[in-house]
């Protein structure tokens, strides 16, 4: 019987027995493979072929092959072109003098007016094309503000910790207790906003309630990168704390921020449409998908297609951004890349 039958690990280590190795009771051959079979290679030889690839280049290479990415990128490009140059896509200027003629009210599509007319006799296709700009503006600028504001606050909170972090965490909790739409409704009701309704008030409102989410995500990413050895190493090289945040921590925290920002761009477009639909978003005279859907719902039963067209454009645009975010997430996912 071995002597450590009553071995108690809590006692710490006993004087170790001399371990002399074991000898089998069976006969064991000593086999040596011929050297030709596995020629010895240099220890840890350096690969010198192939093009050098940064992480971004690698992500780009895998992204390029993804159909999801190609489709969404093309669609987003198309949307941007439509928003920038709507006149390229329709000869009718819906803001023009004779854009809407009541005599055409609710008439179905016909050549030159493929989507028909709305209640006021305006060409639906032209309105949808011209409505792209407002939606895209709201999406892009809300995202920009949210990324800059939320990103900066989240990065500071995550990197410095302490009281900055505590205050921001509580502040974030407070804003989280008020969901986007609900909070936006209240803000849009304020006299300052109600009387100056425009694309910009919607952007500011959405940004007010959108930043905490991005701050939270940035904070998480920064905390993860903050304790990495390369950050410690850069400090030991003499880099100041703030510079190590800017030069090492932030670039390494970008991936989740980019993904969330892309997806959120779509979400903000939906939020704008929802606010417009509820009557507290863009002012009625601004041409937007949300406003058109809101108008169309009043006569949904008689003319359902009028709702379908702006809704379709809206959904496809939002889908493109969400799909892009998804594709980028896959490409930047460190877990997926680790094996390489």
């Amino acid at each position: 019987m071995p002597e450590n039958q009553n071995f108690n690990p809590e006692d710490g280590l006993q004087m170790s027995k001399v371990r002399a190795g074991k000898v089998s009771k069976y006969k064991i051959d000593h086999y040596v493979a011929p050297l030709e079979e596995t020629p010895l290679q240099a220890v840890d030889s350096v690969k010198e072929t192939g093009k050098p690839l940064s992480m971004w280049a690698e992500a780009w290479r895998s992204l390029r092959k993804q159909p999801l990415f190609i489709i969404s990128a093309i669609m987003i490009l198309a949307v941007i072109v439509v928003a920038a140059f709507p006149q390229l896509f329709t000869s009718i200027d819906p803001n023009g003098q004779n854009a809407c003629q009541l005599e055409y009210s609710n008439e179905p599509g016909r050549p030159g007016h493929i989507m028909g007319f709305n209640l006021q006799g305006c060409d639906v296709y032209a309105r949808v094309i011209y409505g792209t700009r407002a939606s895209l503006l709201v999406g892009v600028f809300t995202t920009l503000i949210v990324v800059i504001l939320g990103g900066a606050l989240g990065a500071l909170a995550g990197f410095y910790g302490g009281w900055i972090d505590a205050i921001l965490a509580r502040l974030g909790d407070i804003f989280f207790a008020l969901p986007l739409i609900l909070g936006a409704i209240i803000v849009m009701q304020l006299p300052a906003f109600r009387e100056n309704r425009s694309v910009w008030t919607v952007i500011v409102t959405l940004a007010i309630f959108g930043w905490p989410q991005l701050a939270r995500i940035t904070r998480g990413a920064v905390i993860e990168a903050r304790d990495a050895d390369y950050v410690k190493a850069s400090r030991a090289l003499g880099l100041s704390k703030f510079k190590s945040l800017v030069k090492h921590v932030l670039p390494n925290s970008l991936a989740p921020i980019i993904v969330v920002a892309t997806v959120n761009l779509g979400v903000y477009i939906v939020a704008e449409a929802t606010l417009s639909f509820l009557g507290v978003g863009l002012p009625g005279e601004v041409m937007s998908w949300g406003n058109d859907i809101s108008l169309a719902q009043q006569q949904l039963r008689s003319n359902p297609m009028m709702l379908m067209w702006p809704a379709l454009f809206l959904s496809v645009t939002v889908l493109s951004f969400i799909m892009l975010g998804d594709a980028v997430r896959d490409a930047l996912d460190p877990k997926a890349r680790k094996g390489a």
């Binding site: 449409a273 929802t274 639909f277 949904l300 709702l307 809704a311 809206l314 959904s315 939002v318 889908l319």
Partner: peptide, 22 residues
């Protein structure tokens, strides 16, 4: 799931109300 997230709730609502209800 992507499509559902992309289509605004109120559009989904109207469509379902119109198709299933009406």
């Amino acid at each position: 799931s992507l499509i559902v997230i992309a289509v605004p709730t109120f559009v989904l609502g109207f469509v379902l109300q119109f198709v299933v209800g009406v």
